[in-house]
Design a protein around this nucleic acid. Structure first.
Lengths: 250, 250
DNA sequence: CCGTGCCAGATTGTATACAAAATCTCTATT
DNA sequence: AATAGAGATTTTGTATACAATCTGGCACGG
């Protein structure tokens, strides 16, 4: 959206260096150019991005706060590994956020916004029928993002986007199967039906349901195919059996 | 909890400077030592914290990512002003998070955790009867934090803590009245009742309800008493009439 | 043959110096 | 007298230099 082809050495006047460095690095991580678990030496990125260490380090702190990289003192930075346990935890929170978004979207969405949503859904159906997996996936993300935007809550939107980025990173190494694909479309139809009726409660419930099923599908493929460099100390987990009880640890 | 009296010049071996600077600044902002809207010149904080500009700047980026400060390019940093609109938005998200936490706590909470919760609730009741407002408020925060911890979801807990910090900052300049105090205690009783029965659905609903009422109370006092340095361009807003529809802006 | 301690290399953490941008002030002109 | 403009000052943005810490390998001793 904002960095079509920043090769390496364009001065880029309008923004500060660390700001654009954040954008660069975030894109590189989300595109998979910097895979999860990869070490990120400062000097290497400095010449790759054409900036000095100072702005680069500031960018790394920001990304660390976003959860995209981990910073070990005196030991360098690594792209945050995909931890099925953490992904499951994020999905649980996302379920609540999507549900809230669906409810608010019914109450606050403008007529034009609903029309656009309808259009996007039509696109989704067409892409499903054409078997265009990648396009479907993109449209799917746009639809969910659009519903969140319709909710009209900037905090919700920002929080959602942060988690969605993490989940997309996980999805990139876990393509779920065709059965789930069809099921997912059916759930989208149900959600759209509720939204068209402006039925906030139903939309919230259906979106939560859709989110949970998506979570199960992703986590299933995650713990099956561990072919990539994904670090997974203990990969056997469903979203249904929750992360470890930490109640006594505080 | 972790910085009882870091005066200014103790070397502090175990952590890096920017890390401790983050902790320092966060505490200063949350304690109200740095009030909302206040400009934060780098040099001033440098000598106050006894560090150089480099680690301080990195700390500011982290706090900016947390939403506690705002960074205007070439124009310095300010402590994020309390914007009733944003507080309302945060409360909406918090409602969903607290609800989720209540549900998960019922499913995942250990017996010991529930016992501790009972103990905390007893403390709360005692402090209410004794009229100890400040202590009540502290215990109240601990209870909500404890329920979130019982949920056993680290992502939920981290997200919750970030928003709770923002809301506490807003609460610090908005002490709601005695009626609401009593009402709040009654809601706590109801929540505890549901939790004791391990009734996840009821706990979730009651916590959401409690959260919404708290939001209304805080926002009411916020838009009434604008005595402090709080920046409020348009202070008339309830949590019920939602933030502006931004559907067409994407 | 294996374990422990030490040294060299590399990488990160911090400080300082310099450059650029924005704000403020003072003056000159209308 | 009011306003616009230019210069000075202050503050931020970036680069580089130096110090501290960690990693890996090698030698020495058990």
């Amino acid at each position: 959206m904002d960095s079509p082809a920043r090769t390496t050495n364009a001065p880029l006047r309008r923004e500060t260096l660390h700001h654009s460095a954040v954008a660069e690095l975030r894109a590189m991580i989300l595109e998979g150019e910097l895979p999860p678990g990869r070490r990120v030496p400062e000097m290497e990125l400095c010449e790759q991005l054409g900036v000095s260490r100072t702005p680069l380090r500031e960018a790394l702190r920001v990304l660390a706060a976003e959860g995209l990289v981990e910073l070990r003192p005196h030991r360098g930075a690594v792209v945050t590994p995909i931890d099925p346990k953490e992904i499951a935890a994020i999905f649980q929170v996302m379920e609540a956020l999507e549900s809230l978004a669906g409810r608010l979207a019914c109450d606050n969405g403008s007529a034009e916004a609903f029309a656009e949503l309808d259009r996007l859904h039509g696109e989704l159906v067409a892409q499903f029928q054409a078997g265009e997996r990648a396009a479907y996936s993109t449209t799917n993300r746009r639809i969910h993002g659009w519903i969140v935007a319709m909710a009209g809550n900037p905090v919700l939107e920002a929080t959602y986007k942060g988690f969605a980025a993490q989940l997309n990173r996980a999805r990139s190494l876990a393509n779920y199967d065709a059965d789930r694909w069809q099921e997912s479309l059916a759930e989208h139809e149900a959600v759209m039906d509720a939204l068209r009726r402006r039925d906030a409660a139903a939309a919230a419930a259906l979106l939560a349901d859709h989110s949970r099923r998506t979570a199960d599908a992703v986590l299933n493929t995650l713990r099956q195919g561990n072919e990539a460099g994904a670090v997974s100390k203990e990969g056997n987990r469903s979203v249904s059996d929750h992360p470890a009880d930490t109640a006594g640890s505080q």
